[in-house]
Nucleic acid binder design. Sequence first.
DNA 1: TCAATTTTGTGACTCCTTTCACAAATTTTG
DNA 2: CAAAATTTGTGAAAGGAGTCACAAAATTGA
Lengths: 212, 212
Amino acid sequence: MKYQKIPEATIRRLSRYSRCLEEMDEKGEKVVSSAQLANKCIVNPAQVRKDLAYFGEFGIRGVGYYVKDLLNNIKKILGSDKEWRMALVGVGNLGSSLLAYKDFLKQNYTIVAAFDIDPPKVIGRVSEKLGKPVEVFHINRIKDVVKERKIEIGLITTPPSEAQGVADLLVEAEVRGILNFAPAQITVPEGFVVKDVFFTTILDNLAYLLSN
Amino acid sequence: MKYQKIPEATIRRLSRYSRCLEEMDEKGEKVVSSAQLANKCIVNPAQVRKDLAYFGEFGIRGVGYYVKDLLNNIKKILGSDKEWRMALVGVGNLGSSLLAYKDFLKQNYTIVAAFDIDPPKVIGRVSEKLGKPVEVFHINRIKDVVKERKIEIGLITTPPSEAQGVADLLVEAEVRGILNFAPAQITVPEGFVVKDVFFTTILDNLAYLLSN
DNA sequence: TCAATTTTGTGACTCCTTTCACAAATTTTG
DNA sequence: CAAAATTTGTGAAAGGAGTCACAAAATTGA
């Protein structure tokens, strides 16, 4: 298949397929058809095949897909086969919550440093399972620490008013990926990526659907 | 304008407009054009007008939109002008984090009860700002408490394996809206709504964009 | 071995969303 | 007061994304 721009929705679904395939693999299932996977992920079977077709031919006609093989391929496509080292900026309420919440760093996403304007801040309770607590640095050390610890993703958990400033610092430190929890529009230069996680937006969405 | 199905993306943008308009209102700005609002929200001006046109005519030609008026209208459309009472199910790591994180319950979204299989669980530190701690009930009391406290939205923060079971309980208790943080596909009957918040999916997304 | 069956990969079609472009309505300016 | 300027609301065009339907490839069974 010739090159095409890949829809964002496709990438989101790949992540979903990945989760389902992991479950199947754990159950010991060896082979899966697009129909079975689609059924589990609640999408159209042709959608599954088309999504995969953007990246190559992973199936065998008349058979289906080998679960392990497909899973590995999807992880390679997503880049979720490697370890991603993250920094959290803003150790307030939400920030310390996320530091304490181990499950969202599933497998390959690790917070290796945290920053704040007031660094001696106690970083929440340290979850028993979490192991070592995450070190909290003063925000002005961000550039060195990012370099030293090979950080590639930044989580912004400051108040909205500080979000753009923090984004600028992350850009300056060449942190190319930002996950923004602060409900504020932030902009970054070409080559950098921001993904927003606004609880309020999602709740507004829910509220709309419930009211209509 | 005659009736049309409203795109989900439109609803998401309305929430964004709402946030921007609130900022403008705070700054004392009285009137805004679709171009200014679009610029602030990083969308196309025609998009702004079309989004609003689904619901009525809110602007004045040659002038623009009255900030306060438009804001009120959008809030009414979204249903975010009323108070929404929520229950959180699963007072583990993430659950107690969210209980302690006041900011995400911005304004009109309030957690009024929490549930767990092990209710005497301590509910994290109670944020100083949060005021009263949220009461944690045994999961088997969900039906009464939902009724008693007029709960309309449920937050699922259990391990993924329990998510569908909890969803079933919420459905039985007639909680029509569910915000699902547990990375598992859950299904609910017609008339009920689920919105997923999967950190891993968003990180996978970021990972993909950074790898390509 | 060959027909029947299964299931992928994909071109074509449909449906939905976004953007463009302009008439209509209002304000501003001379 | 009329012409110029502004800005909305919307029909039409363009652009994407999702679904269908079927040829191609592989397997199974007689």
